[in-house]
């Protein structure tokens, strides 16, 4: 096949604009987080004032604390519950498995607003004081189905006799779970936990409806300030981008380093 030169360039062009589309906004955000003025469009010289303001703003820091603690706690709990549910389902008969999966998948397919209003009504019907606890419960609830969905495919690829083999060799059911099954599905558990964490971290719709008494996460804070947006949010976002980048680099680099080490030892 002989293509004309422009045709050959087309894929690169597409990749180029796609990357631009994804990363240019982030880049602009980072740049403007160091802007000297309040403007989001005009550059007025370098300054770190928004970072100082961010760390001095009680509202901002409270929102960060709420977001991070809810994300961490809900990730731990939903990953644990999701993992044992997935393992249980993989050993259940077909009818139970499909029924549970259907019930579990429904919230994923449902528009978030429906889940949000439903939870809100539930909490008010039982006169539960809305705040940190209700938000946490909601986050745990909507994360579990994603964890189950991430882990189940990994379980399907396992030899169905693995747990039995462990018990046959003297392991109690608990030991079989911890020493054999869990190590096998660790990549799935990690992926599930990451999804749960991300989902919780930037959730707005559900959080907005189930919170109260001034408890706000980052999303709620940003949405409620959108009318008079101030560049501290650029500073906060920049910090998040930096943390995520460092995490990604570590996740990708560590296995390679370990491999190198092992080779060096051998």
């Amino acid at each position: 096949m002989v293509g004309s030169k422009p045709a050959k360039m087309l894929p690169f062009f597409l990749i180029g604009i796609t990357l631009l589309f994804f990363y240019l906004p982030i880049l602009i955000m980072i740049v403007f987080s160091f802007n000297g003025s309040r403007s989001l469009t005009n550059w007025a010289g370098f300054s770190t004032q928004w970072y100082t303001q961010l760390f001095n703003s009680r509202d901002m820091m409270a929102a960060v604390m709420t977001t991070v603690s809810i994300a961490l706690i809900s990730t731990v709990i939903s990953t644990f519950v999701g993992t044992i549910t997935a393992i249980g389902l993989s050993k259940s008969n077909k009818v139970i498995k499909e029924t549970v999966l259907m019930i579990s998948n429904l919230p994923i397919l449902n528009p978030e607003i429906v889940t949000a209003i439903g939870l809100m009504l539930l909490f008010s019907a039982f006169a539960i004081r809305r705040g940190f606890a209700t938000m946490l419960l909601a986050h745990i609830a909507f994360s579990i189905p994603y964890v189950i969905l991430t882990i189940l495919p990994k379980l399907r690829t396992l030899d169905p006799n693995l747990a039995e083999a462990a018990m046959d060799l003297g392991a109690t059911p608990w030991q079989a779970l911890i020493k054999v099954l869990v190590p096998q599905i660790t990549p799935g558990i990690v992926a599930g936990a990451l999804i749960a964490f991300t989902m919780s971290f930037d959730d707005f719709v559900i959080s907005y409806f189930v919170t109260g008494n001034g408890v706000k996460n980052i999303s709620i804070l940003v949405y409620t300030m959108s009318k008079r947006i101030n560049p501290t949010i650029n500073a906060l976002s920049t910090i998040l981008v930096v943390i995520i980048t460092i995490a990604l680099v570590l996740v990708n680099a560590l296995p390679m380093l370990r491999k190198k080490e092992r080779i060096a030892i051998e």
Partner: peptide
């Protein structure tokens, strides 16, 4: 009683030694 399973059911995350040592270590 110990069993040799149809598809062996070896533990893929362990090497040969650790597989064989599993029962003793338990």
């Amino acid at each position: 009683i110990n069993t040799v399973f149809q598809r062996y059911a070896l533990f893929p995350h362990m090497d040969v030694f650790d597989n064989i040592a599993f029962g003793l270590r338990i």
